[in-house]
Design a binder for these strands. Structure first.
Lengths: 220, 220
DNA sequence: ATTTTTGTTAAAAAATTGTGAACATCGCAA
DNA sequence: TTGCGATGTTCACAATTTTTTAACAAAAAT
């Protein structure tokens, strides 16, 4: 998403970005930017954000977005002096580029950015709640720091429950997600695996709550 | 990260560095430098550090950073006389440059620095975990100090597992990386080679963990 | 020509999984 | 308070899946 009040700049950047294979959304001011972000949040992978904007300035937009999302934000500043770097990074900007923007330089920076992001991805995928840690890269599950060994079904079950922590997941949903949509088998099977999982979770067994008549829920 | 109280110098250096493709953080005094370092430690590859600073002087900043990090530090000194070389290197500075700084000279020095670092990387390519050493230059593998002889496939297998230590590597991934993307053959082949590798690893066999249903994982 | 490495197969071993039945618990209505 | 049906838990065991191991022959390297 490009946020800039000058149409010329938006068009310039959009053309370059689209030529690079990116898809672009545009907003001319802070207000519309926030509305658009709310609407298309899941489709937006990067925000190019001018500092000088009508309605809300770039800092405000950046802060607001940061309240709800960790999307990468690159700030565009009119003159380098305008950018208080410490301030910028503190409110959550990921990088900044000085105007006048040289599209080639910007593209290089954006590409580099995604590269870096890609590399960083694999690193730190640890879900952790209430003494239960799940590292998806290694499939290591720890209870109070001690590694426990789960079977594939048990692991998937736990993962889905944790991903939906706080929400009830029905036996049907669990069957669909762990066993697959085409699986034909009894619902009691889920109970059995929940049971085995609880046993392995030891004293943390009641992190998985039974919601009678509905399913199970992980208590985050 | 550039640490200097004179804004003009910071801007001068930053512009030159950015033109060279480096990304720059700035701090105007010792206190902010340390705060920033704490916050962005993982993003900082090099510190340019003025000796004369408000709040804490350069020596102090250098010492503090050294307590937590081995990041390269280049000190900037107003006049060469100010730099007590022995003292400087003793507290952990890696190099020093005399002011007035000629940006081109500094850039050359920095580039050289990273080159040296890069080359240094290539030299000492011994991966070592849990009593298993792998010297990629010579292809020598040692278990508890005793050299063992691995076949090419076994070696590649071990290397890839170790490079991804802590993460699960699936049989498909191993086939792709060891045998090549175009290889058509059974997955069981991987098992067989893992088996042979384990036998040669002797008592360290269980450094390669089986993650049933998913693949193998080297326990770093 | 000999040795080493490699891929495949099949049997053995190990771990996981599904099922049904017994048992426990809950909510509700008598 | 009790009894009942519905729902959830637990258990044992057989079936299945997956991994390990061994054996063997082809291919490659020495």
């Amino acid at each position: 998403m490009i946020v800039d009040d000058e149409e010329k700049i938006r068009i310039l950047l959009r053309d370059f970005l689209e030529r690079e294979g990116y898809r672009v959304l545009e907003a001319p001011d802070g207000k519309q930017a926030l509305e658009m972000f709310q609407k298309y949040e899941n489709d937006i992978d990067l925000v190019l954000l001018d500092v000088m904007l009508p309605e809300f300035d770039g800092w405000t937009v950046c802060r607001e977005i940061r309240k709800v999302s960790q999307v990468p934000i690159i700030m565009l500043t009119a003159r380098s002096e305008d950018f208080d770097e410490v301030h910028g990074f503190e409110i959550g900007a990921d990088d900044y580029v000085k105007k006048p923007v040289k599209p080639t330089a910007l593209i290089a920076r954006i590409n580099a950015f995604f590269r870096r992001l890609e590399r960083g991805k694999g690193e730190n995928n640890v879900l952790s709640f209430d003494g239960i840690e799940i590292d998806d890269a290694s499939h290591v599950v720890r209870v109070d720091g001690n590694e426990i060994s789960l079977s594939p079904k048990e692991y998937s079950l736990l993962l889905i429950l944790v991903e939906n922590r706080g929400k009830i997941v029905s036996r049907e949903q669990l069957l669909n997600q762990v066993w697959g949509y085409d699986y034909y088998g009894g619902l009691r099977t889920v109970d059995t695996h929940i049971n085995r999982l609880r046993i392995k979770l030891g004293k943390k067994a009641d992190a998985i709550a039974t919601i009678r008549g509905f399913g199970y829920r992980f208590e985050g």
